[in-house]
Simulated assay, not measured.
Amino acid sequence: MDVMNPYRERLLPPLSVFIACALLVPATLLVFLPINSTVGVVMAVVFYAAAIVLLVLTSPVLTIDDEGFTAGRARLYAHEIGEAEGFTGADATRERGPRLDARAWTLFRGWVRPVVKISLTDLDDPAPYWLVSTRRPDEVVRRLEALRRRTPGR
């Protein structure tokens, strides 16, 4: 991995979620049109735009750089990262469900099925591992392993 080429992934919802938000338009119109048609149209546009902005701004970002791994607002420094393993399909569902340790730190998004499981080297950390949704589990694992190999003291 190279300083000039950090990994970055925003866990945005799929297009279908943005389209479903369009249902706010007729719902808002139903409420406001009897009061005032201009206010109804303006409020419908404002509510739809606010929903879209909220979905984008609250979508967590995953980054891997020379210092470590960030998932949303949480950070693992390079020396804290243990082995990483990616899961897809039924294996990912089992990792998020029956095999999930209640002490694990998680960042899931329902619209992103694959996950990466990252063990931690800090024995004082109460979480045994992190489990994070990602659309590219193989890429995340590859980059985390490259970061681990480059970290001094391993």
Rank of each mutant, 00 (worst) to 15 (best):
E83W: 06
V115K: 03
R96M: 09
L62Y: 07
E85V: 12
D91I: 01
L12R: 15
Y129C: 06
R142V: 00
L76D: 04
L144A: 03
A49E: 01
A71Y: 08
T88N: 11
S37C: 01
P14W: 03
S37R: 15
G153Y: 05
R73E: 10
L15R: 13
A74E: 14
S16D: 10
R109A: 11
R75C: 01
A104C: 06
M43R: 01
A104G: 07
D2H: 11
R99C: 00
R96S: 07
L131A: 05
R113W: 02
N36V: 04
F87P: 04
F87R: 08
L76E: 05
L29V: 10
P114W: 00
L120M: 09
F87S: 01
V41L: 13
G82M: 07
A27K: 00
A74I: 00
A51Y: 02
D66S: 15
P14I: 08
V140H: 04
R99T: 05
I52E: 02
A90Q: 14
P128K: 01
K117Q: 12
V31L: 15
D2E: 15
Y129N: 01
S119L: 09
D125H: 11
L55Y: 03
S16G: 11
R8C: 11
A78I: 03
A92Y: 03
D138T: 12
M4V: 11
A44N: 06
A22C: 12
L62W: 04
P60N: 03
I19V: 15
G82K: 06
M4I: 06
M1P: 09
L12E: 03
S37A: 15
V45C: 12
R149I: 11
A146F: 05
Y48L: 14
T63F: 05
L23C: 13
L15T: 13
L123I: 12
M1C: 08
V39W: 11
R113S: 14
A92G: 07
G40I: 06
Y129G: 01
R149D: 13
D66A: 14
G72N: 08
A49N: 00
I19G: 04
R94W: 07
V115F: 07
L144W: 05
E145C: 01
D138V: 08
S119V: 01
G68H: 09
D124V: 00
T121K: 14
A44L: 04
R113G: 13
E85T: 13
L147Y: 03
V112S: 04
R143Q: 15
P128C: 04
L62Q: 02
E139G: 01
A104T: 06
I35F: 13
R75Q: 11
M43A: 15
Y77R: 15
R154Q: 14
A104S: 10
V46D: 03
W105S: 12
V42N: 01
L30I: 09
D122A: 13
A84K: 04
G68F: 07
R143V: 07
P137G: 10
E139K: 10
A127Q: 04
E85G: 02
L107N: 09
R143D: 14
I52M: 13
F108W: 10
L29D: 02
R135L: 10
L123Y: 02
V116C: 06
L147C: 10
Y129E: 06
S37G: 13
E95L: 06
V31Y: 11
